[in-house]
């Protein structure tokens, strides 16, 4: 099951304007783990996520996705292994209809046309969006868009799911539905989020990033109890834990 593993060693990345995105990040995420990536705005969470499927390449250091090292040569394998759900579904859903959007990746993978329908519908049913198949993405609610953007990734059967702020701009009910859905997935998951309650619900492990470096990596419950660490990282204890303390 080594293809479900992500291992970063001294990962560094600077943007063309000189801004440091990652300043030496090392971690290893193994098969089936759900890991929350938390930190203040601009800490480097999205930069790290963009490395996991080869949208960005490290300035130095290395990133191993499953059996292969991230490189331009292995890009297709890496992107087949890692499915990324973007922060804004409107960036991810660009085809005329929901069906076309889910089928887009499958057709690019060369899946025969007679199998597409089944695979698309299976993915849509998994997220409870089968009835949306003919709808144009711009007519969906935020919750529906989010569900479909997860379906487009699931359709490609990735081993690792990477999500950037999955609960942003969702109403409480849609957020709860998404959390319940994510709990059912057996994939290795990396979720960058400011929603610490979501992290507490889904992820047994949390990595805290601050100014491009990992400042903590451990059990979610332990990390969220560390008030000083949370303060340093511009974070707050999750509401559910505050209630417990009070």
């Amino acid at each position: 099951m080594s293809h479900h593993i992500i291992e970063a060693k001294e990962l560094q990345y600077s943007y063309p304007d000189g801004t440091v995105g990652l300043a030496g990040v090392s971690f290893r995420i193994s098969h089936g783990e759900s890991v929350a990536l938390v930190g203040e705005n601009g800490a480097g969470k999205s930069t790290l996520l963009l490395h996991t499927n080869g949208c960005l390449f490290p300035s130095s250091g290395s990133l191993r996705i499953g059996d292969c090292l991230l490189s331009k040569k292995n890009l297709n394998t890496v992107r087949r292994t890692v499915g990324m759900v973007f922060q804004n579904p409107d960036d991810q859903l660009f085809m005329p209809t929901v069906f076309d959007d889910v089928a887009f990746g499958l057709l690019n993978l060369g899946i025969p046309e007679n199998e597409i329908e089944t695979k698309v519908m299976r993915s849509l049913e998994t997220v409870g969006a089968g009835h949306l198949r003919k709808r144009p993405p711009y007519k969906l609610s935020q919750g529906e868009k989010r569900a479909v953007s997860i379906a487009v990734v699931l359709a490609m059967s990735p081993d690792i799911l990477v999500m950037d702020e999955p609960t942003s701009s969702l109403d409480p009910k849609s957020r709860r539905r998404l959390i319940e859905l994510l709990k059912t997935f057996k994939h290795t998951k990396i979720i960058a989020t400011h929603d610490l309650d979501l992290a507490l619900d889904i992820c047994e492990r949390t990595i805290v990033i601050h100014q491009g470096r990992i400042t903590a990596d451990g059990r979610t419950i332990e990390i969220f109890k560390d008030k000083e660490l949370l303060d340093r990282s511009s974070l707050e204890m999750p509401l559910s834990m505050k209630n417990c303390r009070e």
Binding site: G83, M84, F86, M95, D100, A103, F104, L107, N108, M156
Partner: peptide, 19 residues
Amino acid sequence: ERIYRAMCCRGFDGRIHII
């Protein structure tokens, strides 16, 4: 740029297939 990244993540190679 973000849309292009999303397309690349799903194997976009310059062609758009529609059934």
